[in-house]
């Protein structure tokens, strides 16, 4: 028999998490699909369930100094409506599902589900987001790439809940998010691409490039980004072919029911080229 709990405060929830192995339940839009059963029967949860949506403190979204903090209870709609949500995150979240799902699904859930096709994750990588993991008696902060360890896998520890997503609000005069889905709306990703760059005085002051659904986890390379940082337009032109080749080597997608490896790779590189050619170079001129 599967039990479920509906705590109304975070300490209460963490206490419960400490005592037993439970499935945290946020919006349920992944869980209810995963454990879907015959109509009129209960979803097939293998473990007890901890509802998180009755905890008001988790729903907060606020800016602390230069950091945007999104509570684990905040829905995708909340994230869209919040005025200081970075553009590419808003676009990424708007590309997820449809209004009815976005009204219950959470950003934290999208992250914890750790699907290679999780659309917010791609944007959050490019935004250098981190997550706060709390348990009774403590919390830790992990950069997102350290939290997501594989398809459906995270480094969430026993007794821990993800309580907050943190995004440093950096200057970025160039922000691009592109999703290629199976149709024009309410679609799962074949791949996605996020780019954030700050151009100052004709040189790249900072840049982040992330590719979603083209590998087990989001593809982002700080090393390659470092190569680009500080470069001028002329220097980028010289490096152009190398950059494409380097990314090409990193992007190793698969075939599945939604698309093909060949397509995913080619389009990911096309989007990168387009960003470099028309986005970046234009901004630098």
């Amino acid at each position: 028999m599967v039990n479920s709990y509906r705590p109304t405060t975070l300490p209460e929830a963490l206490k419960l998490m400490e005592t037993r192995d439970m499935i945290p339940f946020a919006g349920g839009t992944d869980l209810m699909v995963k454990y879907q059963s015959w109509k009129g029967t209960l979803p097939r949860f293998p473990k007890d369930v901890l509802f998180l949506n009755h905890i008001p403190s988790l729903k907060k979204i606020e800016v602390n100094g230069e950091t945007l903090a999104i509570g684990a209870g905040a829905t995708l709609s909340d994230v869209i409506d919040y005025p200081r949500t970075p553009d590419i995150l808003r676009e990424a979240v708007l590309s997820i599902a449809a209004p009815g799902i976005r009204n219950i699904a959470t950003l934290a859930g999208n992250i914890c589900n750790a699907s290679p096709a999780g659309d917010s994750i791609c944007a959050l990588y490019a935004l250098d987001a981190s997550v706060i993991l709390s348990k009774s008696g403590g919390e830790r902060e992990l950069p997102l790439p350290e939290f997501i360890t594989g398809p459906g896998k995270t480094s969430l520890g026993r007794g821990e809940l993800l309580t907050e997503v943190r995004i440093p609000l950096k200057e970025a005069n160039l922000q691009v998010f592109r999703k290629v889905g199976t149709r024009k709306a309410n679609a799962l990703s074949k791949l996605s691409f996020s780019a954030v760059a700050e151009i100052k005085g004709g040189t790249i002051d900072g840049i982040a490039l992330a590719f979603g659904a083209v590998g087990p986890t989001v593809v982002r390379s700080k090393e390659l980004e470092k190569k680009l940082t500080g470069k001028t337009l002329e220097e980028i032109k010289v490096l152009y072919k190398d950059i494409i080749d380097d990314y090409s080597a990193m992007i190793v997608p698969i075939d599945d029911q939604r698309s093909t490896a060949v397509y995913r790779k080619q389009v990911a590189l096309n989007l990168l080229k387009n960003f470099l050619e028309s986005g970046l170079l234009k901004e630098m001129q």
Partner: peptide, 22 residues
Amino acid sequence: EVLDGKFRQHTMADYVIPTSVD
């Protein structure tokens, strides 16, 4: 598609029909 005798796109997430914006 058929894979191992089963329809590979067998959920509404994968067998996609037009939405109002298509």
